[in-house]
Design a protein around this nucleic acid. Structure first.
Length: 593
DNA sequence: CGCATCACTTAGGAGTTGTTAA
DNA sequence: TTAACAACTCCTAAGTGATGCG
């Protein structure tokens, strides 16, 4: 609980917004913009907020009697609580995580806590448990849902829509806005990424008694489900969340927040890109400074200068400290350890090569070799001297001091802004280099995807190679071969027709024209297939979506579409267009990031 | 100052839906 | 009409960084 004086202070602040709003409204458009920019991480986020509260997962539905769980080969009827947890595991049987020792251990330990004394007595080994029927049951249920007749499917769709209408919207400052995650997370087994020590831990069902509601003081308080109460109802307009609860895995808060299409999120997104655009004005100075600092007599300063160089050049994440043993062992720039860096005086005919290999966010592997300036190389050698592999490379540096330093160069500048900045700049440059006005629509879109991919590679946005990749690639190759044969065939036919024309005169000229058109069409198809194959190959481990959604100023893409007559739907899906609604009237065809 | 807490953005995979070609 | 595949949405984990606190 907050101390009383702070609560009083917050309450007082809640009356500030009206005054802020009045001041904004009374000054022209320019002042209004500046006002927003200054305001975004400011205190007040809304004046009115009304919603229905989150939608709670329906109660557990017991298995039909025909579905059995077996222990040591014998069917065992489990208590409701134990059965529910068993189904969580059974549902996941096809996933790789259920084969991992840590997952199994954590699951089994938590499952046993839900068992009755007798069950606990009986069920002592996971490897004697047989969930196959449970798994089959859920697979069949999913299958049945998929093959439901049309009307039934329609009905389900309507029900989902009704739920969305009822719980999925809120009123924020007079506007009806979509909520992002209005459905509570159902209970489940925790699936961390990578080697997470808590994988398999039971994620508890969240009750209304765990949930804090945040809404306007004058608005209707959402009704908790019958027979339940909220943990707390508060009215804090300095935050954007509608509801919050503590999750039991890491004991951190989770929030119900607005959908990205909302005005509030849009303004925040816009603000993010405006900060990144301001970096453009000072980036040369910052670069000159960190290069100069490579020669500083102070170790701390040199470490900061090299770290910042990595963040700028390689688009590394900041690398905050993490609680050891509570999460997977991943690092970012500031938390790099000696073991993640290899230095090569000479390699591949180049000098001063730095090789970085580490697991980053989501345990995604970062693996890169870059040529660096001599001073960087020497500094790194020095930072690594007399250290163990497990020691921090930048031992004199913290993310806080790095960001503090950046704040001095530019207001609002933090390490992550460099990723946004470099990503957007790269997109803009690549688009400029790769697009030709006279190209076909297909090749323009392909150019866009190339530019997008360049950014994704810079940011190391990877994905697992799709399971069916090899197969579908092979199929595509076969198609290309068939098409090639068709093209050759069509060419030959055309030649024959031409020869015919020369020997027999005018009579077959119509079919000649047809044959020319057919060849042209086939060649076009072949070119498209080949382009598709190239794209597919180059994209197999690259995730384009993350950069598009989070790093690329949508105004760059919108301007590009306008300039080259590309329909925006070719670039952004419906949801993405809604998310970037803020950008459409802020980007003319000559917009420059 | 250094650690903890909180609120927000960023992230990849799973699952669903839509499209296309057979 | 259907199956295969690609595209997209949903889900929620995992980061960042501001602020609070001892």
């Amino acid at each position: 609980m907050l101390p009383l004086w702070l609560r009083v202070l917050r309450r007082c602040l809640q009356h500030v917004p009206r005054r802020v709003a009045c001041r904004q409204a009374s000054q022209g458009a320019k002042a209004d913009r500046a006002g927003w920019e200054g305001n975004v991480q400011n205190i007040v986020k809304w004046r009115q907020l009304e919603h229905r509260g989150p939608y709670f997962t329906p109660a557990y539905e017991p298995l039909p009697d025909s579905v059995h769980f077996f222990y040591d080969g014998k069917p065992v009827k489990l208590s409701l609580a134990a059965e529910e947890v068993a189904t969580l595991y059974g549902k996941m049987l096809h996933l790789e995580c259920t084969t991992k020792e840590v997952f199994r251990r954590n699951f089994f330990s938590d499952w046993r806590k839900e068992m009755t004394a007798e069950e606990r007595e009986l069920i002592t080994r996971l490897d004697k448990c047989d969930f196959a029927e449970i798994h089959k049951h859920f697979v069949e249920r999913a299958e049945a849902r998929r093959s439901l007749p049309k009307e039934q499917k329609q009905k389900l769709k309507e029900e989902a829509e009704k739920l969305q209408q009822e719980f999925g919207y809120c009123i924020l400052d007079g506007h009806r806005e979509k909520i992002g995650n209005f459905k509570m997370e159902p209970p489940g087994l925790f699936r961390g990424r990578g080697e997470h020590p808590k994988m398999g831990v039971l994620k508890r069902r969240v009750r209304p008694e765990d949930v804090i509601i945040n809404c306007g003081r004058d608005s209707k308080i959402p009704e908790p489900p019958a027979g339940h109460q909220w943990k707390e109802v508060r009215s804090d307009n300095t935050v954007t969340w509608l509801a919050a609860w503590m999750e039991n895995i890491q004991n951190t808060f989770k929030y119900v927040m607005l959908n990205p299409s909302s005005k509030l999120k849009g303004e925040m997104d816009w603000h993010k890109y405006e900060v990144a655009r301001r970096l453009r004005r000072v980036v040369d100075k910052i670069r000159a400074q960190y290069r100069a600092d490579w020669e500083s007599p102070e170790t701390k300063k040199r470490q900061l200068a090299v770290a910042l160089y990595f963040i700028d050049k390689l688009a590394l994440r900041t690398g905050n400290e993490k609680e050891e043993g509570e999460t997977a062992d991943t690092v970012g720039c500031c938390s790099l350890r000696v073991e993640h860096v290899r230095l090569h005086e000479k390699a591949d005919g180049q000098e001063h090569i730095v090789e970085l290999v580490f697991l980053g966010k989501d345990s995604i592997r970062y693996n890169n070799r870059v040529t660096v300036e001599k001073l960087v190389f020497q500094n790194l050698q020095h930072f690594m001297e007399d250290k163990d592999p497990g020691d921090n490379l930048f031992d004199a540096l913290s993310t806080a001091s790095l960001n503090k330093h950046l704040q001095d160069s530019m207001e609002g500048l933090t390490a992550k802004v460099f990723r946004t900045y470099n990503a957007s700049v790269t997109l803009q440059e690549q688009l400029r280099a790769l697009t030709r006005a006279e190209d076909s629509l297909t090749s323009k879109i392909s150019a866009y995807n190339r530019a997008n991919r360049a950014v994704a590679i810079l940011c190391n946005h990877r994905r697992a190679i799709p399971k069916t990749f090899e197969k579908s690639m092979q199929k595509l190759q076969e198609k290309i071969e068939i098409k090639e044969a068709q093209v050759t065939e069509a060419q030959a036919e055309l030649e024959r027709a031409k020869a015919d024309l020369r020997t027999h005169g005018e009579s077959k000229s119509k079919s000649l024209l047809q044959k020319q058109q057919r060849l042209l069409k086939l060649e076009g198809q072949l070119a498209r297939l080949r382009a598709k194959a190239t794209d597919k190959e180059e994209n197999k481990q690259v995730a384009l979506g993350t950069a598009k959604l989070n790093y690329l100023d949508p105004r760059i893409s919108i301007a590009w579409c306008k300039r080259f007559g590309v329909p925006i739907e070719k670039i952004y899906s419906k949801t993405q267009r809604e998310r970037f609604a803020w950008a459409f009237d802020r980007a003319g065809e000559d917009f420059e990031f």
